[in-house]
Simulated assay, not measured.
Amino acid sequence: MTQAIDVMGAGAFGSALAIALSRDGSDVTLWARSSEQVAALRETREVARLPGVILPKELRITSDAGALGAPIRLLAIPMQALAQHLQLLPARGGTALVACCKGIDLSTGLGPTGLIARDAPGCVAAVLTGPSFAADIARGLPTALTLACADAQAGAKLQSALSTETLRLYRSTDPTGAELGGALKNVIAIAAGMVIGAGLGESARAALLTRGYVEMQRLALHMGARPETLAGLSGFGDMVLTATSGLSRNFTFGRALGAGSAPSQGATVEGRATARAVARIAADQGIDMPICTMVSAVLENTLTIEQATAALLARDLREE
């Protein structure tokens, strides 16, 4: 049975998901906000950030909100723009809204499913997250992600509808843990990039990833997440990929900062806003998150990388 799916957001990740699902036989509509972008995609059938990948001829592309009516809608929208898009493009009650973004909304402190619950209360809220690069998904390379939905029955249906031969989804009923893992690992990836860019070495990166993972668990458990979620694809797995690959936007952003270079402009670096949100939450709720707090301070230009490094190394000695 053909499954109808809408994908909001024609960036690299949204386009990659649309390509993979359409290629697998789903009836997919890809929505882009710009009519000019739609025209270019229809003419060339190519996405600039997915070189060498051709959009399937069956994949529909539109900027018309009225064309969106599938029972499943993937929201491949940057986190800080998600609330605006939920309000601009409301979904019918009962529609499954699957967030494909990672971060914490700066104005509310909510994650993706929290925003969906607030702005689309009649819809099913879920999040799709984990270690993945858009180009790998688009090229049909094996990729595993977490599909988290508090409603176990709805989550099972979404898992079946969104899995393909090469895109393997693992189901979870802990959206809080899944989305916090996906958000916090971006901050740790920026920090890891700073370490490498500043020439502090691979041993320092290993130590930072280990202690950064502790911070991810600390905040997530405080917010009601389950520890096994953070140990899975959406936490540990995503951190490993994002904090070690030169293809990671957050890592390369941090590496440029660490080397004293200007980061490239235009790419979405979700960890920047997430670091600010996490530092605020940690301060308000008394949660010890030194690495995330230092990343925020460096990004706010209140500390240099050298000062942040010295402050972390000067912390009291303790048991692991």
Rank of each mutant, 00 (worst) to 15 (best):
F133V: 10
G130T: 07
G212C: 14
S245W: 08
G235Q: 10
P90E: 11
V38Q: 14
Q80Y: 08
A12T: 08
M294E: 15
G11E: 09
Q153S: 13
R118W: 01
R249C: 10
Q159H: 07
A65D: 12
E36M: 02
E270N: 04
S132G: 07
Q37W: 01
T62N: 10
T2D: 14
S26L: 03
L110F: 09
S22E: 08
G232P: 13
A91C: 10
L158N: 07
T229G: 07
K102M: 05
T166R: 12
T146K: 03
S245T: 10
V53H: 02
E319T: 13
G197E: 00
A206V: 10
D27R: 09
Q217G: 07
T166D: 04
D105K: 02
A125D: 12
S15L: 04
L257A: 05
R139W: 03
R272L: 10
A138L: 12
Q84N: 09
R318M: 02
G122W: 09
S107F: 00
T29D: 03
A267L: 13
A83I: 03
T242E: 11
I287K: 02
A161R: 11
A198C: 07
G232K: 03
T210D: 13
P90W: 04
L209G: 08
M294G: 04
Q307W: 00
T2M: 15
G9A: 08
G182M: 00
T302Y: 00
I5D: 14
A148V: 02
S160P: 00
R168S: 07
A152S: 15
I281P: 06
R171T: 06
L115Y: 09
D151V: 09
L209T: 06
Q153Y: 01
Y170S: 09
V195I: 15
T29G: 05
R33G: 08
M79I: 01
F133G: 09
M216I: 13
A148P: 02
